[in-house]
Computed example of a mutant assay.
Amino acid sequence: MDLGISGRTALVLGGGGGLGAAIAQVLAEEGASVAIADINMQAARRSAEAVESAGGKSVGIQWDLGDLGAVDANVKLVEDSLGSVDILVNNTGGPPPSAVLGQGHEIWSKHFQSMVLSVIAITDRVVPLMKSQGWGRIITSTSSGVITPIPDLGLSNTLRASLLGWSKTLAREVAADGITCNVILPGRIGTERIKSLDRTRAEREGKTVEQTTAESIASIPVHRYGEPREYASMVAFLASAQAAYVTGSVVRVDGGLITSI
C-alpha cells in the first residue's frame, strides 16, 4: 500500500533510539524526509545516518525538550533543511520510576515542561504552516499507563494522561484544516526503556530480571514483547493519506495487554 507521504517532511522527537528511531526509519522507507530530534546528538546522528544509508533524506538535531526557548530555532532548522513540517511525531522520553506521593514540585515542573509543554509548544509552532497547506498529521506517543496506570510510574501515568485531553481538543480545532491529531500508545515494546523498567522492578521485588521479564510477557495475550517496527508501522499509517478520516483517536499497540474496552 502506498501511504501517500512520499515527499512529506516529518519531525520525530526522541528519534535517536528505541521507538523514535524505528518510527523515523519506517517513515523514511515510505518516502518522507525525516528530521530526527534527540537530546543526545550522537544518537540523533546515528539515526539520521541509518535513514540516509537506506536512501532517505534526514537531518539530526540536538534538542533538549525541556528548553522551550529552543523551539522556534530548532523548527526553523528543520524547515531550512527539509521543508515545513507535515508530520509531527511527539515522542518524549519517560521520567524515572516513582510514586506519585512525595515528589517535589520542582520534579513535577521539570517533567511537565519536557513531556507536555514541549509537545504543546512545538505543535503550536508547526500548525500554522500545516493549515496554510491544508494538510498535516500530529501523532502523540504516550503509554498504556494513561488507560491502566502502571505501578511505580506515577509521574509518567499522570503527565502523559494530560496529553490525551490536549490531543482530543486539538483534533476538533484543526479538523477542518485537513489536519489530524491522534494519540498512539505502546504496551510493552522491546526497547531499552522496557528493559530498564524490568531491571528496576526486579531489584524492587528481589527477583532476577529473567523472572520479571517472564512474568511481564505472561501477562500479554500474544505472549511476547512488541517489535519497535510494529509500533512504527502504526504511526506511519496514522501519518498516511489513507488515515485522513482518523482523528481524535487513541490507538493501542499493546498485544492485547490493556484489559479494558
Rank of each mutant, 00 (worst) to 15 (best):
M1T: 11
D2T: 10
G4M: 12
I5C: 11
G7Y: 09
T9K: 03
G14N: 07
G16P: 00
G18A: 10
G18C: 10
A22V: 03
I23C: 09
A24T: 04
A24R: 00
V26A: 06
A28C: 06
A28E: 01
E30V: 00
E30A: 11
E30F: 05
S33R: 14
V34D: 07
A37M: 07
A37T: 00
D38K: 02
D38P: 04
D38T: 05
N40L: 05
A44Q: 03
S53A: 14
S53V: 00
G55W: 02
V59I: 15
G60D: 05
L68H: 04
G69H: 05
A70V: 02
V71W: 03
V71M: 07
D72W: 00
A73E: 13
A73Y: 00
G83H: 06
G83K: 03
G83Y: 01
D86L: 06
L88Q: 09
L88F: 15
N91K: 06
T92E: 09
T92I: 13
T92D: 00
G93L: 11
P95W: 02
P97M: 07
A99H: 06
Q103T: 02
Q103N: 14
Q103E: 14
E106H: 12
I107L: 15
S109M: 08
S109E: 15
K110S: 13
M115G: 01
V116W: 05
L117E: 11
S118R: 05
V119E: 00
V119H: 02
I120V: 15
I120N: 03
A121P: 06
I122N: 00
I122T: 15
I122S: 02
T123Q: 04
T123C: 05
R125W: 01
R125T: 09
P128R: 07
P128V: 07
S132G: 01
G136K: 03
R137D: 09
I138F: 02
T140Q: 05
T140H: 06
S141C: 14
S141M: 13
S143V: 13
S143Q: 08
S143W: 00
S143D: 12
S144C: 02
S144L: 11
I147N: 07
P149H: 02
P149Q: 04
I150D: 02
L153H: 12
G154R: 03
G154C: 04
S156M: 13
T158Q: 09
L159C: 08
S162A: 15
G165L: 08
R172A: 14
R172K: 15
E173N: 09
A176R: 14
A176N: 10
A176C: 00
N182E: 10
L185E: 12
R188A: 11
G190E: 14
R193L: 15
S196Y: 13
S196N: 13
R199C: 01
T200Y: 11
T200R: 07
R201C: 01
R204M: 13
G206I: 09
K207H: 04
K207A: 08
E210P: 06
E210Q: 15
T213A: 13
E215T: 09
I217D: 07
S219P: 02
I220M: 10
V222N: 08
V222H: 06
R224I: 08
R224A: 12
Y225S: 03
G226M: 09
E227L: 14
E230A: 05
V235N: 01
L238E: 07
A239H: 04
S240P: 07
A241S: 13
A244C: 10
S249V: 02
V250E: 14
R252K: 15
R252E: 13
G255E: 10
L257S: 10
I258G: 04
T259C: 04
